[in-house]
Write a protein that binds this DNA or RNA. Structure first.
Lengths: 218, 218
DNA sequence: GCGATATCTTACTGGCGGTAAGTACTATGG
DNA sequence: CCATAGTACTTACCGCCAGTAAGATATCGC
């Protein structure tokens, strides 16, 4: 019985599974594997990749993606979390090398730029996609980075004897700034990351003080 | 012949036009009317609005939207231009009231926040939408605001005897910062616009100088 | 053993972006 | 004044994709 299958079962894991429960006692792919596959598919096909392409990359079919992760927005949220984690980790590493004051800021910015550049399409997948609940999603994503950053800022400000209530506003601002500059730098600029990081550090460090004229020029 | 039509032709302009060229020698709606309708439809249905809904709002059918404006991305670009114009105009007005230095900065930020809040869904429509050419489109949009801002910054820096080559980076950064903070403020914060504007001005004016500790805290 | 349940697949639905084909009015040459 | 060309709409369709229901085949509890 069943003499037509089992042929080529192992060629590259690309065989079409028959309908029905597969032999084995675990899920053939777990949630993390699906997300891994999603990242690969996004890197290959771009931010507009279809769920079916993600499923193919994972070696399963569409409903499995829905079962393990959820609908498109939930895939996006899960990947946003991953990306935010990587950003935080890269920042921590960059800052960890003991540095001081402004140098720390430059290192943090540069590591963010380079991390986002390394995951360009993922970044676009996560920030893209229009729908009614887009605002909530974009903010959810931004919050992953902004909340920890706000804690840090609040701590610094408090230590410096300044009002810490600006922290959340500043954090969202810095996240937005980094997102936009990253996009621009990745797409249109060929300057080295360090130079852009220095320029941004100039802005965030001493800012517009002494730059904007005290009286309208004309 | 043709005895079944012409009945109810005038009720609310909501009649279904018969196929064929309508009587009259002009377009029934021009490009600007379609874009006006698009703005209304977006305000009503949100950023995920369908082209067909836009067409209905304009009182025509889908192919007319394509004939007058183009595909979805082109509608988005056209509306992005409108939004950028409004932002620049609001900024110019806010700054125009003669103010000096930091006050000017606060006014500019606050007017941007309020303008984006007033066109929330439009803002989301324009910044949303995933596809291969998303990066180009987002940057095109950002550039509408960033390019003029960069000119201003370069002029200020030059006048202050500082290197103006930071201008473009700074401009994209400020645009990204304003976008993100606006989104956050619109969606989740109930503080007055002026307070948020003051906080951002703090960041952009004197920035992190004197805030980040000179040695790692731990 | 055998029903209950778990884990896959195929197959379908609904909606939307975009376009082709059809229809009715206007303009112009003979 | 009629025929032909051109214009400005509509209906109707195609293809694609997100998301779901229904079907097939394995393991598990008794």
């Amino acid at each position: 019985m069943e003499c037509d299958v089992r042929r080529g079962e192992s060629l590259m894991d690309r065989v079409r599974r028959r309908p029905g429960r597969p032999t084995g006692r675990q899920h053939v792919v777990d949630r993390e594997r699906v997300l891994d596959a999603a990242e690969r598919a996004i890197a290959q096909y771009g931010a507009g990749v279809s769920i079916e392409a993600i499923a193919r990359e994972a070696g399963v079919t569409k409903p499995i993606v829905y079962a393990r992760v959820g609908k498109r927005t939930e895939v996006s949220d899960a990947l946003a979390q991953r990306l935010a984690d990587r950003l935080m980790e890269a920042s921590a590493t960059a800052i960890g090398a003991r540095r001081t004051g402004r140098t720390q800021l430059v290192a943090m910015i540069q590591s963010s730029l380079e991390t986002l550049a390394a995951h360009r399409e993922l970044f676009l997948f996560v920030t893209g996609g229009a729908s009614e609940e887009m605002p909530q999603r974009t903010l959810f994503l931004a919050a992953q980075s902004a909340k920890p950053m706000a804690d840090q800022i609040a701590a610094w400000r408090k230590a410096a004897g300044l009002d810490p209530s600006v922290a959340l506003t500043w954090a969202y601002g810095v996240v937005g700034l980094l997102n936009m500059v990253s996009l621009w730098w990745i797409t249109e600029s060929d300057e080295p990351a360090q130079r852009v990081a220095e320029q941004l550090a100039d802005l965030l460090w001493s800012g517009f003080a002494g730059v904007v004229p005290e009286r309208p020029a004309k």
